[in-house]
Design a protein around this nucleic acid. Structure first.
Lengths: 343, 343
DNA sequence: TTTATTTACGCAATCGTTCCCGAGAACGAT
DNA sequence: ATCGTTCTCGGGAACGATTGCGTAAATAAA
């Protein structure tokens, strides 16, 4: 089942011209007479001619498409980021090819390889939770592929990066809890190897310290798959709840962890925030509708996507190799609602 | 900033062979000697050769990529569908190019044109709410582009379609309300021109009729942009609430309408389901966590995406033009929770 | 030994487009 | 009349890969 497209040859044949002339007429070259241009343009219009982007890509060695690798598309944060990416890409005439690693290192490697072999002009990526070895990314980058990292980044890769001020996000959130009188503040975090986990935990830690609250190691629980598998979250929360010094508040470091934690707490019949307070990263637009309304740290996801795309296209369209890279740090927003106030 | 790829020529030059021989050796042709094959393979490995997919696309007239057009990526339902699409596409070696119409007819036309001109092998599309004229799709389809419609479909386009049994979804939901003693059941629906709106409203209507409940036209409110603009939803809900015969239940026909409606009701301080019950289409995984837990009609979104992709690839890879088209109807699930029970 | 067959490879066209050259015509300048 | 320009246009290579066809050498059959 094929799809016969009109080519420049068809126009040339119809008009008794050469393909060179037609090509030039179409590109409005000065060395083509006005009448011929007119003729060609009319004919092209009539035949509904569309330049073949694949032929162009082959010649120009660029495909006008960018690849995106995230762990999961069906995640409020990432889908909002992709929304932002698409909006800029659309404006600039680029296609967006999405793929998901599903938090698997192996899939991330394959995805990246696949995208590279499909000649995308650049890649925007947020690392999978399993990723500790970065050679696949470094190798691609060394071969000249423009890459922008966002959210889950890594210092070892020298390129543009877009993140939010994760430290500040949890610092403010933790401080909010403290100011509301909570003292035994636990943290439910993602994989220890993730940049965002470390940064967010640092904010939490420093806020505690700044307010002279002792920090207990057992108050920090890690979920390696960061909420993708609910049972993992459930187990971690249960562990916190069975501590002799039961925490009176939990701060969570990702979207799925937040909802997973809330779900577990509710299932156990706990009253939030009376029995235990909850505050966490979340970009869900219905966080305000849950019971109780969630106090969340919200990331400017769409803006992150837009920024990442702008930075990437800057690399892609740069004439000379770029050596100076930028780390753009956006500001998270603390949306104060009912789940973290002392009643 | 370019990205110098190894070509078949480089291998040929390095080995003093012709490109034809290299190509054939790589494809394991029988007319190449075992030693030569070995040589070529080793050299390709050493040079890290990757076939240029663009050159292949140009020759084979297929790009191994599929286009997806949805109104919005950052929407639980659609992001789940895209997740399903990506999973099948990944398995079959296809790339997924996503674009969003943002409920704009104009953007849908441009998106489709763009995808077609980028030589995707096929397109999966859910119509925008503004779309009433289908010529852009019909034209593309007539020119041989494989197309699969899902969710918001249209009978005038003769191709594979994937939907859920929308009628059944609202019928069961309405019946659930009736059985719980609700009698003045209003509906908050999307654009009247959308297939899903008509089907879902029909289910609602017939369920009322089957239970001898009179149907009042003013009980049905339409939001043209289906929840994308919150003010529209708010206004519609307020209209329902100021009716002399105030409804005691609302059924909503889409994700955003459901959450928008809930938000409005809560803002007005209404007690759900005591003052008014709520039931609606939703694929949000935290619908059970909102206050009150939402009774929802859930679509098997991922499965829809998978089905649509399988059908599309079936078209794409078919040798002969396909004339018989299938409408695959999946079953929605009624998840009964607290927002629609009589206390 | 001659002829037929197989083996193993190269040449060149092809996909759609761009672009470097070259070339013919028209024109003004000498 | 001759030369140099300018204006238009065509020929053909190139991008990377595949593939039908041709062909030389080696082998088998006569």
């Amino acid at each position: 089942m094929k799809f016969e497209a009109v080519t420049i040859k068809d126009i040339a044949k119809a008009l008794g011209l050469s393909t060179s002339t037609v090509s030039r007429a179409l590109r409005d070259s000065h060395e083509i007479s006005a009448e011929t241009k007119q003729l060609v343009l009319e004919c092209a219009e009539k035949l509904n001619y569309r330049p073949n982007p694949i032929a162009l890509s082959l010649k120009e060695k660029r495909s006008r498409s960018i690849g995106v690798v995230v762990c999961e598309i069906a995640n409020t944060f990432f889908s909002q980021v992709i929304n932002g990416i698409e909006s800029i890409a659309y404006d600039r005439g680029y296609n967006v090819i999405v793929s998901q690693s599903r938090e698997s290192y192996e899939r991330e490697v394959i995805d990246l390889q696949f995208l590279a072999s499909r000649s995308v002009d650049g890649v925007i990526i947020s690392l999978s939770t399993e990723t500790t070895d970065l050679t696949h990314i470094k190798a691609l980058h060394a071969r000249g592929m423009p890459i922008v990292l966002f959210d889950r980044i890594h210092d070892d890769i020298d390129t543009h990066k877009v993140i939010v001020d994760n430290y500040r996000g949890t610092y403010e959130a933790t401080e909010h809890l403290i100011k509301n009188g909570f003292k035994r503040i636990a943290a439910l975090a993602g994989s220890e190897f993730l940049s965002i986990t470390a940064e967010r935990l640092a904010g939490y830690h420093d806020a505690l310290k700044a307010h002279n609250i002792s920090y207990s190691k057992e108050y920090v629980q890690h979920c390696f798959y960061g909420g993708m598998v609910f049972s993992e979250v459930e187990e971690a929360v249960n562990k916190l709840l069975t501590l002799k010094q039961k925490p009176d508040a939990i701060i969570t470091t990702s979207d799925k962890l937040t909802t997973g934690c809330l779900k577990t707490l509710k299932r156990r019949g706990l009253d939030i925030p009376k029995d235990i307070a909850l505050i966490g990263f979340s970009n869900s637009d219905i966080a305000e509708l849950v019971d109780p309304p969630l106090t969340v740290i919200r990331q400017p996801a769409e803006e992150m996507g837009r920024a990442a795309t702008e930075l990437l296209l800057q690399l892609v369209e740069s004439k000379r190799p770029v050596k100076e890279f930028e780390k753009r740090v956006l500001t998270p927003e603390l949306l104060i609602r009912g789940s973290a106030i002392k009643l």
